[in-house]
Each structure stands twice: as C-alpha cells, then as structure tokens.
Nucleic acid binder design. Sequence first.
DNA 1: GCCAACGTTGGC
DNA 2: GCCAACGTTGGC
Length: 156
Amino acid sequence: MSTRKRYWLMKSEPDAFSIDDLQKVGVEPWNGVRNYQARNFMRDGMQVGDGVLFYHSNCAVPGIAGLARVASKAYPDETQFDRKSDYFDPKASREEPRWMLVDVAFERKFDRVVALEEIRRHTDALGEGFALTSKGTRLSVMPVTAAQWKLLLSLE
DNA sequence: GCCAACGTTGGC
DNA sequence: GCCAACGTTGGC
C-alpha cells in the first residue's frame, strides 16, 4: 500500500543545526522533538519520500532555507535514553519509548532564505489554519498542503 | 534580552 | 481533574 507524497515544514535553529549542516552530513536523525503534536506528525503522518521545507528559526532572518525529504519511517529517538543528553527523558524506556523521529535527507539549499516576513504577506493564500503564520503557534513540525508547498516554493 | 503565547507538571 | 506555576519557543 502506498499513499501520495505529503509535505511538511520542520524548524531548526541554525546555530544548532542548519541547512548547511544537513548538506554536509547528507542524512540526519531529527532528534530532540519533545512535543507530542510534532511527534505524532512524524510517527503517524510521515512516509519515506515526503517533501520537507527546512526552516531556520530563532535567528536573524527566520525563514525557509532549503528542501529536504523524509528518509526513514519513524523510530525511537535515541537521545531520550541518554542520561548525558539534553533531551534525556527519565520517563521513557526502551520498552516504552515516548519520542519518535524520522531521518531527514538533504535535497537542496535555496539561493536565498524565503523569510518569514515575506511568507506572512501570503497569509491569506496560505489559509488561516497554517501553523507557521497562525498566531501563537510554536509547532516545530507541521503539515503543509500541496497548494501551500507550491506557493512557498514560488517565493524562492 | 524581552516577553507573549503556549505546553507541561504537580499539588490539591 | 483543575489550574497555578513554571519552562520553553521563537519573533522581534
């Protein structure tokens, strides 16, 4: 059984892990997500080959920095078991992991960042429900519709 | 560095 | 199960 390709937006702080870092390593486990909604999107929604908008957050020019793709099915985030990790979760166990992730593969870096400021100018076209531009949402992993994907790519 | 908005925790 | 307190996110 296969389903149509889906689209996503994933946020990362470039100081911690940027599109350039992804380009260097090629594939990266998307660890450290500690929000249930974001986890559920990775665990229940993502399929290998899905498109990913790589978003730089908490930086001088927040915005979409490039494209990636989902490169694995969901599996447990190793950092939850690691006492030395910032992402260690004492309530997680190998028998009952709490946090899941997918691998993300580099696709392409944009020639320029499509800034949040610019994306906001298209709030109406993107729709009220779009988590990136809707007020007060801090989701770090969110679904993107085919129409939103097309529009956002056209801004590059 | 500020702070609004939000999610999570834990006492009751 | 409520909800105040606390911690985090992330734009500005």
